[in-house]
Write a protein that binds this DNA or RNA. Sequence first.
DNA 1: TCAGTAAAAGTCAATCTGACTCTAACTGGT
DNA 2: ACCAGTTAGAGTCAGATTGACTTTTACTGA
Lengths: 230, 230
Amino acid sequence: MTGQLQAALAVSTVIFTLRPDPASDLSTLWLPLVRRTREPHLGQWALPGGDLPADEELAAAAARTLRETTGLTPKYLEQLYTFGDPGRSPGGRVVSVVYWALVETGEAALAVVDENVQWFPADRLPPLAFDHNRIVEYALWRLRTKVEYSRIAHAFLGETFTLAQLRDVHEAVLQKALDPANFRRTIESSGTVVDTGQRVAGVPHRPPRLYRYNDSVNATDLGPFGPAIG
Amino acid sequence: MTGQLQAALAVSTVIFTLRPDPASDLSTLWLPLVRRTREPHLGQWALPGGDLPADEELAAAAARTLRETTGLTPKYLEQLYTFGDPGRSPGGRVVSVVYWALVETGEAALAVVDENVQWFPADRLPPLAFDHNRIVEYALWRLRTKVEYSRIAHAFLGETFTLAQLRDVHEAVLQKALDPANFRRTIESSGTVVDTGQRVAGVPHRPPRLYRYNDSVNATDLGPFGPAIG
DNA sequence: TCAGTAAAAGTCAATCTGACTCTAACTGGT
DNA sequence: ACCAGTTAGAGTCAGATTGACTTTTACTGA
């Protein structure tokens, strides 16, 4: 018998990963959605999330609900926006604190996929429950207009990566091709990555170097709390 | 008898304006604080705000509470962050959706000032109630790292303004001196302002032109809803 | 051993930026 | 009436940055 005079508090998460689009064969952004198992919007696709427990931190609740519904652990998790329009949910008012997360491509492949959890390309989504289409659009905008891509790009990749892989991430996020030589020059002079000395073996061409992310630089906007996850 | 199993929802606002610092005589950022009239933190300075009414939009609640406590109407209002750490408030848990606002210098001068409402320079604040010091710090960071200053700078100024006034705003926000000639060049080529044809008369030197903000360009991040106030 | 391909380095011109100089236009004091 | 002081606003120049492009290096597979 919780009083419904106050708005209910919920936490949702927009999760992005990078995978090849079967249509274009280029890397594009994908996100997992879960099917609603109760009213309102029963049966419709929606962002993973849930009610906020009385004594759980907001970011922790976001991480937990997304782990429970999709089995994913994000490398990057940041608060996106709080949606509180009265009337955005049929029934009682719900204020949703929405987070956005990035997961590695490898990690994403291990995620739960079944009748009720599926991945969709971010630019070809079905009609979602509530105002979730608008939320995803805003998350995409934030991802693409982030000034600081280095940490974002890193969150999509594993511990080590080639510059071609890194460029691929940037191209997918920015939605345009980048000159390999100029990209190399920019990244190298930025100091955000470090040469590991290793090379990839067995490729049918000149073997690329492996790089590692340089932790000692840059701080993205992770909110007022500094580095959270990642 | 509202159930306290759920967290309480509140809305607060960090309000900035620009005014000369009596110490340095340069323009700096100031913000109004209100004295707490009840526990917890009775008597301490805090951000204006209040509980979220059951059916009021978040931004509307921010605008209303700040009008009621300070008498101010902001030219710019944007969601900042939602703070929900359990334990950030003694007593029951409070989740605060915090907005940040900018008001014109002229408007700010008309604001209520009394025993319980006072203006402080943003970089010399007293110890505030709750986690409000940290919130202000974050708001300052967001203000200073905004890529898009044009709209922000405009929010501090009146309808028309000189380039010197505009430069003064930029200097106060960025906390460094800017070359007048280079500033002029940058602004003119950006197209964010339009020459009104008018000039300021009666100044003891060469009379500067008056400019007007060009509405037809740029959209700051005002959240997923596009232009709200201003 | 050669053809194909991608990595990685290098070149060059256009643009942008910061520091600086120079001229224009006004007022207030003598 | 005019000069001193001051700010507006235009112009110059060198160094850094960026995009487009070329060249060389290093591998595999036929």
